[in-house]
Design a binder for these strands. Structure first.
Lengths: 137, 137
DNA sequence: TCAAACTATACTAAATTTATAGAATTTATA
DNA sequence: TATAAATTCTATAAATTTAGTATAGTTTGA
């Protein structure tokens, strides 16, 4: 399941994607438009900024706008930024690899191979969902 | 990601699937054989029993054994028993449907349709992984 | 009757999640 | 240059979940 943070991030990106080109959205505007707690959203937008998904303009008449093309922001990207690994166990992860704490022998682990398969399929599916594809529906 | 509980459940099932037909495994045997904390495993085995995946024999010389065929225990089943929904949001779930707390209009939600697609694909993949298929590798 | 095993329930500590609070900084413009 | 409006930063707190432990009870075979 997605955390609220990831869900809110996606909703915020969807909001931004639906604004006119060159429009800058204030946090309060996004929060109200997408039903997200404002102070929580502030943190999320900063994380999205650090991830180079959105840009910001400070000061009066400032706000946020999409930095990447909406066709190039995938569900997998946002999941990884906020919820981390796509894989079901760290030992099956590409970007967040870690040995399992209770692992005896990774090469002999009966679980790992199956979970790598799942990760490959899930990742492919999640990379197929973009902010643009969501907006279109 | 899977919780430790789900991972331990899968490891316990894999252990049971690799024993001789008619063999009954004590908790301590499974715990040591699969590197799972014994008291934690007790709870997990009871849950697996309530889910009709394993059977048990009480008293001296008692223990646990697979109840379902290992070909018919899927990753999706075990995930649902311990970690709940396969879907990324409750509103996109088949077995654990719930309206999102912050939902304004489900029919107009841009996220939901994409997440239903993901759930369909992930579920298919997870139903393809069985205890039997994992043991074979 | 005893030992060995499962069963049941309660409890606890740590980590994570979901926020909120408040102060600092930046910027446009009157 | 003062002010208002906005982002930015850091700390904190409440609630929930996770992971695991403790204890007592019940069942069974020898």
């Amino acid at each position: 399941m997605l955390s609220h943070k990831t869900k809110y991030a996606l909703k915020a990106l969807l909001y931004l994607a639906q604004q006119d080109e060159n429009h800058i959205s204030r946090t309060i505007e996004i929060a109200e438009g997408a039903s997200i707690p404002k102070k929580f959203l502030e943190q999320i937008l900063l994380d999205l900024k650090r991830g180079h998904f959105v840009g910001s303009k400070q000061g009066k008449y400032g706000g946020y706008y999409l930095l990447k093309d909406k066709e190039n922001i995938t569900l997998a990207d946002i999941h990884r930024l906020f919820d981390g690994a796509i894989a079901l166990l760290p030992c099956a992860s590409l970007n967040f690899y870690e040995r399992c704490s209770d692992c005896v022998s990774e090469s002999e682990c009966a679980l790992r191979h199956g979970l790598i398969t799942i990760r490959e399929e899930t990742l492919k599916a999640m990379q197929g969902i973009t902010i643009a594809s969501l907006v279109k529906k």
